[in-house]
Structure formats: structure tokens, C-alpha cells
Amino acid sequence: MSPAALETKLLCKSFGALAVSSDINFTLERGARHALIGPNGAGKTSFVNLVTGVLKPTSGNIYLGGRDITPLPQALRVKLGLVRTFQISALFKRLTVLENVTLAIAEREGTANDILRPAGHRRAEIEEAFSLLEPLGLANEAMRPVTELAYGRQRMIEIAMALALKPQVLLLDEPAAGVPPGETGAIIDTIERLPAGIAVLFIEHDMELVFRVAKRITVLVQGAVLVEGPPAQIAADPKVREVYLGESHSQ
């Protein structure tokens, strides 16, 4: 048995008396399509921040492919293949789409430490960036500054940048947040077409996206895991209906 792509054991985080995560035992299998849902303030983004190293846990451990990464800084976790996107687009807005993606590739390749040669000499990296943008339909806008693109398109750049880092584990923090209803389809298609080898965990409020993509769902309430299982089981669970899904999904 090879170890899970990502695992947390008794992960806790509190700010003073406020516990944002309590005893979270979580397993993300290899190649998983796993959704993390829960009401606002359930601690979903805090969980992502703990796993990626933005926050230090109060106690507990995080394992990436069986290796304990709890003490590692954020940058090293990325190097090991743990990559995230952000709830609110966090891009280099004044730079071009292409520059955003090549920055990520340069970090992955370690060329970003090169202080001597011009960046343009790395032609292979530029071509790779295009090969990432092409399937997302972003290649024609590659030379434009990010700010000029519609928000839905910016969300796709987030995914392109994440893929540029060749992740083993991809954490998508509300990939469809803020996207107009007509454009969510493109985001869902993109997530469905992600390489099968990548273990994907996504936080999402859009239930259409969750139930279409996820093979497994974890429900987080007040910093703790309420229930976990396949979508059908979650949809039928009375506890989940009560705290989260509401009447619209219960009929």
C-alpha cells in the first residue's frame, strides 16, 4: 500500500480561545477528486492554510505522500508538489498572463535563482507556458495584462499557474467563487479535465460543481469533520441537510 497523497492527523489550530480547526483527521487518496464543503466560517480556508504552511498548526501533523511536512516552510511544500489556488484571484495583475505562468515555471525549474542570463533565453519555459494556456483557451490573451481579462478568465489563470508547478496534490480554494453563472461551466470542464494522476481537493459552495466533480466529500462544521463519504451518502445525510444544504436540496 502506497501512502495517501495527503493526510492530516489530529490537526488543530486555535487563535486564543477560538478553535478554527479541531482534531482534523483527513485523508486525500492518490488521484482523488475530493470536495471540502461546509457553511461559512467552518474553517475550510484555514484548513488549506494549515496544509500549505501559511498557518502553523497548534498541534497535529501533516503528511504528504507519507512524509511528515509539518515543520516545512511553504516554499518547500510547493517544491514537494503541494500546490494551491486562492479563493480571491491572487495573480500578478499588472503583468501579462504569460508572465504569470512563466514566473511559476521558473520557480519550479529553479531558474528563478539565475541572476545573470536574461529571462528570454529560457525559450522552452515560454513554450511550455503556451502549452499550458492553450488547452484552457487562454493562449490568445497570453500577452495581455491580467487586469484586462474577465474575472472568470482570471480564475483559469490561477489553475494554469498551479498546473505549471506540476503538482502531486492540488488544493483549489473556491475555484468558481465570484464567477458569473454563465462562466462556471468552463471552470467545471477545466477541473474535470485535470490530469488523473493529480490528487485534487477543492473547497466549493457551488453544489453543481461539487456533485458533478467530487467522488468523495468531507463536510466541515465549526472546525471539525462532521461527516465524510461519497456524494450520494452526503446528500442523503440528515445531519448535513440540517447544518448545511438547506431545504432546496432536501426534497
Partner: peptide, 19 residues
């Protein structure tokens, strides 16, 4: 250089550079 480009990235959004 790629190093210089990464500095621009840090100026624009340091949190994203870490990510």
C-alpha cells in the same frame, strides 16, 4: 534575469510568490 522577474513578482504579490 529570471531572478529579477521574480522580484517583480514579489513586489506585485509576495503571498502569491510564496504559493
Amino acid at each position: 534575469s529570471p531572478f529579477g522577474r521574480s522580484l517583480t513578482g514579489i513586489r506585485e504579490n509576495a503571498a502569491r510568490m510564496r504559493a
